[in-house]
Design a protein around this nucleic acid. Structure first.
Lengths: 108, 108
DNA sequence: GGAATAGTTAAGGCAGGACTTGACTGTCGG
DNA sequence: CCGACAGTCAAGTCCTGCCTTAACTATTCC
């Protein structure tokens, strides 16, 4: 089947970092500027920028420049890619489980 | 709200590595020994062992020693942790979208 | 215009992660 | 018992990823 997902690789790599997950969670509540995103984080603005670039490359975040501020927004659709990947693993697993039947259940 | 998920951190970190995802995908088709898992991978057995330890610490894989071979098996339940996290992000997002109403839809 | 604001870019430091090698343990087949 | 097999452990190398600082650009406000 070759499972050709549109590159979950950058998505998972982006979400692997706790800071980036915090950013994603924050953006889940609505758009925000880079400054706003950086405010609660214990690091420089430049560091947050770099995190945003990773998230943007992964397609999880879209941003737009308005005046001198950059407004960032979550792209939830990208999370479906992950959803799909997980679902696929589980489906294969459960299909296998069905093939085995209830037999193995007996030997707890 | 404090979203107290049982540590998605190790799960996402484990899945961030392409090699480990390959192992997960392989194990999705059924249990396998360390040797079998290592066979298609361009690295030493010791390296695969280390990957397995990461997966096991994340709770994604369980293994059992049988004679001189170690049989590894996927723990699909752990993927639900990730599922839950994603679902939560999407839920928050959609709730926000609802609050905004249809107004923004007009300015396509 | 000039100072403060918000972001961007580049360089470098440092720690952690991925992989290797080599020595070692335990197990199976003959 | 002995060799081959499957895995384990410990160092050590190397490279990537996260973060910093510093200099620089583009806006906004007075």
């Amino acid at each position: 089947m070759l499972h050709q997902y549109p590159s979950i690789d950058p998505v998972l790599q982006a979400l692997a970092d706790p800071t980036r997950r915090l950013i994603v969670e924050r953006l889940g509540e609505g758009p925000a500027s880079v400054k706003q995103l950086a405010a609660p984080l214990p690091m420089s603005l430049a560091a947050v920028m770099q995190h945003l670039q990773v998230l943007e490359r992964a397609g999880l975040v879209k941003s737009e420049k308005r005046g001198r501020t950059r407004v960032c927004e979550l792209d939830v659709a990208r999370l479906d890619t992950l959803d799909a990947w997980i679902a696929e693993r589980k489906r294969t697993w459960e299909r296998r489980y069905d093939r085995l039947g209830e037999i193995l259940k007996k030997e707890t």
